[in-house]
């Protein structure tokens, strides 16, 4: 009996992360208040509220989506795109999100599009799944595979062999997808220009030569940062230093800590 209680507690502990954000936010009164601010047109206040929720580490993709909406209502498409892209990491198949992101991209002056890496192009399906979804799918495949192996340890039926082959294939595909998504998220260096215009300089000093200009909503790749400056590059190979406040990295430190467990 004592053993059973220990198993139940362990199982609940393992499953608790699945439901934690839902319980945390559904019961959060502040979330309703912020939504009310948005509905009544107090976008500045609503945006601050959503940002606080996001910073608290409890926010899911829908909070970033709402924050993007608030930014768009305030006429800040750059920030809206940034937050929609962050939301897409968590709720990639949300149709409202795709629609609003597409609308925000239409509003920006720059014609750049979110660069898709070679991994995303080949393994196209991983774009449709969030990292946690792929993790739990792989965990399930992993559990089933070793359960089948365990079964075959004691009972070797012919159908068990075919089941093992099918499970092994699913395990391989699940592991590959999860690994690639993990790598893609960890190495995601995309940033979005949030200022109306941003000068890209030859060095991280205000007096350096302006190499080119970026407009709000432009996608760039962040190579490294020094003090208040970040070195960005464009798909055509051009590189330059912009102020850190003018462009924000999509997967920032806060998001990395939440999304990447390893």
């Amino acid at each position: 009996m004592k053993g059973l209680a220990v198993y139940v507690v362990c199982a609940l502990w393992l499953l608790s992360p699945l439901c934690a954000p839902a319980q945390g936010l559904a019961g959060d009164e502040s979330f309703s208040r912020i939504n009310q601010d948005f509905r009544e047109g107090r976008y500045e206040q609503a945006a601050r509220g959503y940002e606080d929720l996001a910073a608290s580490g409890r926010a899911g993709g829908h909070v970033y989506y709402n924050l993007g909406n608030a930014c768009l209502k305030m006429g800040r498409p750059g920030e809206a795109i940034l937050n929609y892209e962050r939301a897409r990491l968590m709720i990639p198949r949300d149709k409202d999100l795709s629609f609003n992101l597409s609308h925000a991209l239409d509003l920006k002056a720059d014609s750049s599009v979110s660069p898709a890496g070679p991994l995303s192009s080949v393994f196209f399906w991983i774009r449709s799944f969030a990292l946690p979804e792929l993790f739990w799918a792989f965990a399930l495949c992993n559990g089933v595979l070793f359960a089948v192996l365990l079964l075959r340890l004691f009972w070797r039926a012919e159908w068990g062999y075919y089941l093992l082959m099918a499970t092994l294939f699913l395990w391989f595909m699940g592991g590959l997808s999860f690994g690639l998504k993990l790598y893609e998220t960890a190495s995601d260096s995309r940033a979005v220009v949030v200022a109306k215009t941003a000068d890209a300089l030859a060095g991280p000093e205000p007096g350096d030569t302006v190499l080119f200009n970026l407009t709000e909503g432009a996608y760039v790749a962040c190579e490294r940062s020094e003090h208040d400056w970040i070195l960005v590059s464009l798909p055509d190979g051009r590189r330059g230093w912009v102020r850190a406040q003018d462009a924000e990295v999509i997967v920032d430190r806060n998001l990395k800590a939440r999304l990447l467990p390893f």
Binding site: P21, F31, N35, N66
Partner: peptide, 15 residues
């Protein structure tokens, strides 16, 4: 905007 529990019903968190 997405509001309430409906918005978070299907969230799977990273452990």
């Amino acid at each position: 905007i997405h509001t309430g529990a409906q918005a978070f019903a299907k969230v799977l968190a990273m452990p």
